[in-house]
Amino acid sequence: MEYDKIFNELFDADGLRKGYYKLDGQGKYVLDTNPTLGEAVVNGLMLTELRTHLEESRKAVHAGLKSPLFYYMELRQFDLPTLAKSAGIASFRVKRHLRPEIFAKLKPSVLERYAKVLMVTQQELKTVPDI
């Protein structure tokens, strides 16, 4: 996979450049804005991974294997313990809520807690986008 390519595309698009200390010709340290190969590859890898995870979770929700909560958890880069702690709901309950049949029966008050933490509306939380 050409991970650095993905990185470079985004790099050109957003224009948010970071600084790096580098030696100039006279052996003095100066600030430079060109990213290194290592960063490009790793960042590209992480981005690809996040995107594939997100896409897989979306498909899993459509296939009825997971609840939409799972998709939004991936979208916000939470893992299970983090989500549980943020929402103030025990992690074994959150785990149960990832099953679609149990998620469908949740009370609005519980949904509201998830919606608040994940920054989506309750309506959005019940569905995932079709692409």
Partner: peptide, 16 residues
């Protein structure tokens, strides 16, 4: 490597 290169200015970056 993400910690070496990216976070903050990256571990190598901190050495520089």
């Amino acid at each position: 490597v993400r910690w070496v290169e990216e976070t903050g200015t990256g571990g190598a970056g901190f050495r520089y």
